[in-house]
Structures are given as structure tokens and as C-alpha cells.
Amino acid sequence: MAKTILFVEDSASMRQVMMTTLKREGYDVITAVDGQDALTKLDGKKIHLIISDVNMPNMDGITFVKKAKQLPAYKFTPVIMLTTESQESKMNEGRAAGVKAWIVKPFQPPHLLAAVSQLIMA
């Protein structure tokens, strides 16, 4: 059975690129345009991994992760942050929120897929 990944990103082009990359590897992908939309999309669904941007309108990625981790169904769901942010302070903030990996854009599809596979299998 295909694993489901939630991808939260405000850029339409990034959503398309990520959807293509993940679907070609056989993953089911749910997309959301910001943190608030992502919380609505979760809706108790079985999600194996969350990939999220940091800087987004309405609700940023870190806040979304904190809120998602408060929900019992997603307490142990691994999270990857995919962002242009590379500041140590932001990374520490993400780590404190429960993020498992921090990828600085632009991502290389093989590297991202390796990280995804590693975290889903863990």
C-alpha cells in the first residue's frame, strides 16, 4: 500500500515539482497551500510523513508543526522542513518543534527521496 505524504507549500511551482517527484516514486501526495490549510487537510487521515515550507502566509511552517504535533494522531509523524532558511536559530526552532530533518532549497530529488524513505522506514 502506497505511503501518504502531506506537502505544505505556498508556491504552486514547488507543489507541482514535489508532487511529480514523490508520485514517480509511488507515494500518495496531499498538498496544502499554508499551515492553516494543512491543519484542515489532516482531518485525522493516515499521514506517514509531513514535508513543510517555513515562510508561508496565514500560518508559518513551524507553528503548523507545533499544532500538528499536539494532535494525538500526528504526534509521532516525522516532519521534514523544506525551506530557503538556513539560519541556525530557525533550525533550532524547528528541532524544538519536533522536526526530524531540515532541507535547504533547492532540493536534489535523489537526496530528498533518500531522506523521505529513511524517515518513513524509521
Binding site: 514547488m14 517527484t21 533547492p106
Partner: peptide, 16 residues
């Protein structure tokens, strides 16, 4: 195409 996808991510950076 994978490389193209990497390059297409420039749009996100430009957008920001």
C-alpha cells in the same frame, strides 16, 4: 528532468 526540476525551483526563490 530531475535536473530541470531542481532548476525550476529558482521560481520559488525569485518569488520570495
Amino acid at each position: 528532468i530531475s535536473e530541470v526540476f531542481v532548476e525550476l525551483q529558482f521560481q520559488d526563490r525569485v518569488s520570495q
